[in-house]
Simulated scan of single mutants.
Amino acid sequence: MESRATAFRVRLGLGELGSLPVVVVLVAVWIVFQSLNENFLSPRNLSNLSVDIVGTGLIAVGIVFVLLIGQLDLSVGSVSGLAAAVFAVLNVNSGVPEWLALIIAVLTGTAVGAIQGFSFARTRVPAFVVTLAGLLTWNGLMLYILGTSGTINLDENGLVADLTSYYFTHDSAAYGVAAIGAGLVFLASYRDRQRRKAIGMPHRSLVEIGMRTGVLAVVAFAAAFVLNRFQGLPLAFLIFLVVVAGLDIVLRRTHYGRQVYALGGGVEAARRASLGVIRVQTAVLAVSGTMAAIGGLFLASRITSVSQASGSGVLLLNAIAAAVIGGTSLFGGRGTTWSAVLGMLVIESVASGMAITDTPVAVQFMITGGVLFAAVVIDSFARRSQEAHGRA
Rank of each mutant, 00 (worst) to 15 (best):
R196Q: 07
G266H: 11
A111S: 04
L285Y: 11
S94N: 15
L317P: 00
V324S: 14
Q71A: 10
V96S: 00
F237V: 13
R258G: 04
I103R: 08
I180N: 09
G265M: 03
I152W: 09
T328C: 12
R44H: 07
L20S: 10
G147F: 09
F230H: 15
A269L: 13
I347W: 06
V64F: 01
I69A: 00
N37A: 01
A270K: 00
Y190K: 11
R279Q: 12
V361A: 10
T359M: 15
I31W: 14
A236G: 12
I59T: 05
L187P: 01
G15R: 03
L72V: 11
A83Q: 03
V24Y: 01
S312P: 03
A355M: 07
G183L: 06
R212E: 02
Y166V: 05
H255K: 14
M354A: 11
P234M: 04
V29H: 02
F230I: 05
L241R: 08
H203E: 10
Y166T: 09
I239A: 14
R383K: 01
H170I: 10
S94I: 14
F331T: 01
D248S: 15
L285P: 02
L316F: 04
G57M: 08
A198I: 06
L46N: 09
H389F: 09
S80G: 09
I199G: 06
V130C: 05
V280K: 01
R195H: 02
G232V: 07
A269S: 15
I356S: 02
L345D: 11
S352E: 02
E268N: 10
G265L: 04
D171C: 11
F128E: 02
A309R: 05
G214L: 08
T336W: 05
S189Y: 08
L233A: 07
A319P: 08
G313E: 12
A273G: 06
L132A: 07
A351G: 11
V51C: 09
R196A: 04
M211T: 03
S301C: 07
